[in-house]
Protein backbone atom coordinates (compact mmCIF):
# COMPACT_ATOMS: atom_id res chain seq x y z
CA UNK A 1 0.00 0.00 0.00
CA UNK A 2 1.25 3.41 -0.92
CA UNK A 3 0.89 6.44 1.33
CA UNK A 4 1.77 10.08 1.05
CA UNK A 5 3.07 11.61 4.25
CA UNK A 6 2.39 15.31 3.95
CA UNK A 7 4.50 17.73 5.95
CA UNK A 8 2.44 20.72 7.05
CA UNK A 9 4.02 24.14 6.90
CA UNK A 10 5.12 25.98 10.03
CA UNK A 11 5.85 29.65 10.65
CA UNK A 12 9.53 28.88 10.22
CA UNK A 13 9.06 26.98 6.95
CA UNK A 14 6.84 29.81 5.63
CA UNK A 15 9.55 32.32 6.54
CA UNK A 16 11.96 30.26 4.50
CA UNK A 17 14.13 29.75 7.58
CA UNK A 18 16.76 27.12 6.88
CA UNK A 19 16.74 24.21 9.32
CA UNK A 20 19.60 24.01 11.83
CA UNK A 21 22.60 21.81 11.22
CA UNK A 22 21.29 19.37 13.88
CA UNK A 23 17.91 19.23 12.20
CA UNK A 24 19.46 18.59 8.79
CA UNK A 25 21.55 15.78 10.22
CA UNK A 26 18.58 14.23 12.02
CA UNK A 27 16.49 14.45 8.85
CA UNK A 28 19.29 12.91 6.81
CA UNK A 29 19.54 10.03 9.28
CA UNK A 30 15.78 9.56 9.23
CA UNK A 31 15.67 9.49 5.42
CA UNK A 32 18.52 7.02 5.37
CA UNK A 33 16.64 4.80 7.80
CA UNK A 34 13.55 4.94 5.58
CA UNK A 35 15.54 4.04 2.48
CA UNK A 36 17.42 1.23 4.21
CA UNK A 37 14.17 -0.19 5.54
CA UNK A 38 12.90 -0.28 1.96
CA UNK A 39 9.81 1.85 2.64
CA UNK A 40 10.63 5.24 1.07
CA UNK A 41 9.85 5.58 -2.63
CA UNK A 42 10.02 9.33 -2.94
CA UNK A 43 10.16 12.53 -0.96
CA UNK A 44 10.97 16.21 -1.29
CA UNK A 45 10.54 19.63 0.24
CA UNK A 46 8.73 22.71 -1.06
CA UNK A 47 9.64 26.38 -0.94
CA UNK A 48 7.41 28.71 1.10
CA UNK A 49 4.02 29.69 -0.31
CA UNK A 50 5.38 33.21 -1.06
CA UNK A 51 7.04 31.59 -4.08
CA UNK A 52 3.77 29.97 -5.17
CA UNK A 53 0.36 30.85 -6.49
CA UNK A 54 -3.21 29.61 -6.35
CA UNK A 55 -5.64 29.15 -9.18
CA UNK A 56 -9.22 29.37 -7.98
CA UNK A 57 -12.29 28.30 -10.00
CA UNK A 58 -15.79 29.65 -9.64
CA UNK A 59 -18.86 27.51 -10.32
CA UNK A 60 -18.79 28.43 -13.99
CA UNK A 61 -15.23 27.24 -14.30
CA UNK A 62 -13.67 30.69 -14.57
CA UNK A 63 -10.16 30.71 -13.16
CA UNK A 64 -8.57 33.50 -11.14
CA UNK A 65 -4.97 33.55 -10.00
CA UNK A 66 -3.84 34.58 -6.52
CA UNK A 67 -0.15 34.93 -5.78
CA UNK A 68 1.32 33.73 -2.48
CA UNK A 69 2.06 33.98 0.38
CA UNK A 70 -1.04 32.50 1.99
CA UNK A 71 -2.16 33.11 5.52
CA UNK A 72 -3.45 29.80 6.91
CA UNK A 73 0.02 28.38 7.59
CA UNK A 74 -1.11 25.10 9.18
CA UNK A 75 -3.14 24.20 6.09
CA UNK A 76 -0.17 24.63 3.78
CA UNK A 77 2.19 21.90 2.65
CA UNK A 78 5.96 22.19 2.97
CA UNK A 79 7.06 18.73 1.88
CA UNK A 80 6.12 15.09 1.41
CA UNK A 81 7.27 11.50 1.45
CA UNK A 82 5.87 8.54 -0.45
CA UNK A 83 5.97 5.32 1.57
CA UNK A 84 5.31 1.76 0.41
CA UNK A 85 4.23 -0.23 3.45
CA UNK A 86 1.89 -3.07 4.35
CA UNK A 87 -0.64 -1.11 6.41
CA UNK A 88 -1.70 2.36 7.56
CA UNK A 89 -0.38 1.44 10.99
CA UNK A 90 3.08 0.88 9.54
CA UNK A 91 2.97 4.23 7.73
CA UNK A 92 1.96 5.89 11.01
CA UNK A 93 4.74 4.14 12.96
CA UNK A 94 7.32 5.33 10.45
CA UNK A 95 5.90 8.86 10.49
CA UNK A 96 6.06 8.92 14.32
CA UNK A 97 9.83 8.58 14.06
CA UNK A 98 10.34 11.73 12.01
CA UNK A 99 12.65 14.11 13.90
CA UNK A 100 10.34 17.13 14.00
CA UNK A 101 10.03 19.58 16.89
CA UNK A 102 6.62 21.12 16.36
CA UNK A 103 4.58 20.78 13.21
CA UNK A 104 2.27 18.11 11.88
CA UNK A 105 2.28 15.24 9.41
CA UNK A 106 -0.76 14.01 7.55
CA UNK A 107 -0.84 10.44 6.27
CA UNK A 108 -3.03 9.64 3.30
CA UNK A 109 -3.31 6.51 1.17
CA UNK A 110 -3.06 6.94 -2.60
CA UNK A 111 -6.37 6.44 -4.32
CA UNK A 112 -6.77 3.53 -6.70
CA UNK A 113 -9.02 3.59 -9.81
CA UNK A 114 -11.71 1.54 -8.03
CA UNK A 115 -12.27 4.45 -5.60
CA UNK A 116 -13.86 6.55 -8.32
CA UNK A 117 -16.70 4.12 -8.98
CA UNK A 118 -18.73 4.47 -12.13
CA UNK A 119 -18.12 8.18 -12.61
CA UNK A 120 -14.58 7.33 -13.65
CA UNK A 121 -15.49 5.70 -16.97
CA UNK A 122 -13.02 3.61 -18.96
CA UNK A 123 -12.85 6.50 -21.47
CA UNK A 124 -11.92 8.94 -18.73
CA UNK A 125 -9.37 6.50 -17.35
CA UNK A 126 -7.92 6.16 -20.82
CA UNK A 127 -7.62 9.95 -21.12
CA UNK A 128 -5.99 10.25 -17.75
CA UNK A 129 -3.60 7.47 -18.58
CA UNK A 130 -2.60 9.13 -21.86
CA UNK A 131 -1.95 12.32 -19.96
CA UNK A 132 0.16 10.54 -17.39
CA UNK A 133 2.07 8.85 -20.22
CA UNK A 134 2.85 12.16 -21.83
CA UNK A 135 3.98 13.61 -18.53
CA UNK A 136 6.27 10.66 -17.92
CA UNK A 137 7.67 10.87 -21.42
CA UNK A 138 8.42 14.55 -20.87
CA UNK A 139 10.12 13.81 -17.58
CA UNK A 140 12.25 11.08 -19.08
CA UNK A 141 13.16 13.11 -22.16
Amino acid sequence: MRFMVIVKATEDSEKGAMPSQDMLEAMGAYNEELVKAGVMLDGDGLRPSSYGARVRFDDEGNASVIDGPFAETKELVSGYWVFEVSSKEEAVEWARRAPFRGGELEIRPFSVPEDFGEAFTPELQEKENELRDTLTAQREA
Binding site: A37, G38, S86
Partner: peptide
Amino acid sequence: PALCQEAMRLGRILAGL
Protein backbone atom coordinates in the same frame (compact mmCIF):
# COMPACT_ATOMS: atom_id res chain seq x y z
CA PRO B 1 1.17 -8.68 -4.94
CA ALA B 2 1.86 -8.68 -1.18
CA LEU B 3 4.61 -11.27 -1.71
CA CYS B 4 6.12 -9.15 -4.48
CA GLN B 5 6.12 -6.13 -2.20
CA GLU B 6 7.73 -8.09 0.61
CA ALA B 7 10.46 -9.36 -1.73
CA MET B 8 11.11 -5.80 -2.94
CA ARG B 9 11.24 -4.50 0.62
CA LEU B 10 13.79 -7.18 1.54
CA GLY B 11 15.70 -6.42 -1.66
CA ARG B 12 15.90 -2.72 -0.72
CA ILE B 13 17.05 -3.61 2.79
CA LEU B 14 19.74 -5.87 1.31
CA ALA B 15 20.81 -3.15 -1.13
CA GLY B 16 21.32 -0.86 1.87
CA LEU B 17 23.37 -3.52 3.67
